[in-house]
Amino acid sequence: MQDWPLWEVFIRAKGGLSHRHAGSVHAADAKMALEHARDTYTRRMEGVSLWVIPSAQIISSDPADAGPLFEPAEDKIYRHPTFYSIPDHIKHI
């Protein structure tokens, strides 16, 4: 007998916030995964909404590709507001 599949649990802590990864549970089906997520991760009023996703369905980037994926953004400093100097007496900008 194999373990029940693993599911990743995401919780919205309160209205207006996005769901955030909380942990995982094992469950045989989606309904059970939600129930287990509720019973495991929201016992202390941690959330108002839950997502569960089969862990096997998550596609993640390879850390070995971190260079090509993320480093090219490093020199695009003109995307950030602090790149531009505006004299102090100019307001509301």
Partner: peptide, 11 residues
Amino acid sequence: PTIEVDLSLAN
């Protein structure tokens, strides 16, 4: 039967 079920029953 599993840890998860244990937590549910305790709730």
